[in-house]
Amino acid sequence: MHLRFLLALTPLLLSPLAHAVDCDNASDQATMNQCASEQNKTADKELNTLYQQITTRLKDNPEAKKLLVGAQRSWIGFRDAECKFSASGVAGGSVYPLIYNNCVTDLTKVRVEAFKNYLKCQEGDMSCPVPSAP
């Protein structure tokens, strides 16, 4: 009984592998939207990793950590509002997810670079809010 159940599920388990998306050659809107969403997730994951690294460095400075949390929340609000506006010309259309996700990804990549710069601060750099790595 269990074997038949597992065999019945096999196509469902393997279907993501069978339908791997070639984003470099995407030619239909659904695929382009899916690829834009995946790129967004990748950029967001990198941003979150860097954010965690910064908060770890700020563990001995709760005031700076609180400022970072506030800044990040404000930045997310700005990013989302900006991208809703940016994509508003195609609201309700099939291209909306592509335009919106591309905007979010682009702004996230800019924030990623800012976080990377924070993590490169040199000891004694008074203009940098993140302490250098030990």
Rank of each mutant, 00 (worst) to 15 (best):
C121V: 05
F5C: 15
N40T: 14
L98N: 01
A133D: 09
D106I: 09
L68A: 02
S27F: 15
C35G: 01
P62A: 08
A20L: 13
Y96L: 05
P11K: 00
Q52F: 09
F115H: 07
S127W: 04
S27H: 12
L7F: 15
T56R: 10
T42N: 04
A18T: 11
S88M: 05
R111P: 06
C128Y: 01
S127H: 11
D24F: 10
A36W: 00
Y96G: 02
P62G: 02
I99A: 07
N48H: 06
L68G: 00
L50E: 02
L119G: 01
A43F: 08
M32P: 06
P16L: 03
L7W: 15
S132C: 03
A71V: 04
I99K: 07
S132P: 04
L107E: 03
S127D: 13
K45S: 14
V110I: 12
A20P: 05
S15Y: 11
V130T: 14
R73T: 09
L50M: 06
K116H: 00
K59D: 12
G77D: 11
D24C: 08
D60K: 07
R4Q: 12
K120T: 08
N25Y: 11
L9D: 08
T55V: 13
D22T: 10
M32W: 12
F5A: 15
M126L: 11
N40H: 15
G70V: 06
N25W: 11
M1V: 15
P134A: 14
A133T: 06
A64R: 01
A8G: 04
T49W: 02
R79F: 07
D28A: 01
K116N: 09
H19C: 10
N33K: 07
R79M: 12
T56W: 06
R73L: 12
C83L: 04
H19N: 15
P11E: 01
R57I: 00
T49S: 07
L13A: 10
S86T: 07
A26S: 13
Y96I: 01
Q72P: 00
C121E: 05
A43I: 07
D44I: 09
D60Q: 10
K116A: 01
K84F: 06
K120V: 06
D125M: 04
P131S: 09
A81C: 08
S86I: 04
T42Q: 13
D106P: 00
A71K: 00
L68R: 03
G124Y: 07
L67Y: 15
F78K: 11
S132H: 05
K41C: 08
T108A: 06
M32C: 14
Q39I: 03
L47D: 05
D28S: 10
E113H: 09
G93K: 03
Q52G: 11
V69F: 09
I54H: 07
G77L: 08
P134T: 03
K116C: 00
M126P: 08
S27C: 06
A114G: 03
V69R: 15
S127A: 15
E123L: 02
A18Y: 13
N25K: 13
G89L: 04
S37L: 12
